[in-house]
Design a protein around this nucleic acid. Structure first.
Length: 255
DNA sequence: ATGGCAAGCTAAGCTTGA
């Protein structure tokens, strides 16, 4: 069995100060996709991860202290790829590693603010990403997209859907984009096993929303239909508190 | 409709986050 985790760490150095390395050692996933490193390569001590047996792959942002994704894998990848030939590739948002049987992506989708320029950028990024994946999947049918999508797909995915109809992350356009993305041939791993609500992956840092479980589910592991027969379990780890997000986990019986 | 907090840059306050 291969355990694939995904975790928006909201600053890897801050997460490490809060015990991320010890948690990683104990949970011991085969692969973990990380988002929002908020650190560049030279600001990190790879030895922390290498001592636990991980290969370290990174797609960092040009801008210091901003964004950045990584994948830690016990098994070395055959090939890695960064970005998807998009204007925002310099923001460190997309990293792929390939094994014999399948590929793993770590993705950190842009966030938007209501009515802002950044929301328009997010929407155009989503459109370009859709086009990229629709081609990619044709020749690489066994793929899992792990990461922070910054979108709640359905009303069940956030605690307050009614008051957030127009909030970035839950607009009609973004929700429809998510549905169309799944139609390319992906399954939402967590939802596949957990049809009920009240399961979230992110909580606002304000007003103790986490203790009251008032959150949003914006972190996903979307697994291609060709891999679904290999998907054995999917769950989240809301008790891991190194970040304002929690880890998500998928278990597959691939090598 | 607004505010609520935190990380990290850089050196007191700004930007970003969703």
């Amino acid at each position: 069995m291969t355990t694939i985790a995904s975790y928006n760490v909201n600053g890897i150095r801050a997460a490490i100060r809060k015990g991320f390395i010890e948690w990683l050692r104990d949970f011991d996933p085969d692969i973990i996709c990380l988002q929002e490193l908020k650190a560049q390569r030279e600001q990190l001590d790879f030895q922390y991860f290498e001592e636990l047996g991980y290969q370290v792959y990174i797609d960092e942002a040009e801008k210091k202290g901003y964004s950045g994704v990584a994948i830690l894998s016990k098994k070395p990848a055959h090939r890695i790829a960064r970005g998807f030939e998009h204007d925002l590739d310099n923001e460190g948002r997309l990293l792929r590693i390939d094994f014999d049987e399948y590929s793993v992506f770590s993705v950190y989708m842009p966030s938007g603010a209501s009515g802002s320029h950044r929301q328009q950028i997010k929407l155009s990024w989503l459109k370009a990403f859709y086009a990229f994946v629709s081609e990619y999947i044709k020749t690489n049918p066994k793929t899992i997209f792990c990461g922070d999508f910054n979108i709640c797909h359905e009303a069940i995915d956030l605690h307050n859907p009614k008051s957030n109809q127009k909030s970035p992350g839950f607009t009609v356009e973004e929700r429809e984009w998510f549905s169309s993305f799944l139609k390319l041939g992906f399954v939402d791993s967590f939802r596949h096993f957990n049809p009920e609500g009240n399961h979230y992956s992110w909580w606002s840092l304000r007003a103790q929303t986490r203790d009251r479980n008032l959150g949003w589910r914006i972190d996903y592991q979307l697994i291609s239909t060709a891999l679904v027969p290999h998907l054995k379990a999917a769950y989240m780890l809301p008790d891991a508190r190194h970040s304002d997000h929690c880890p998500t986990v998928a278990e597959v019986d691939c090598k």
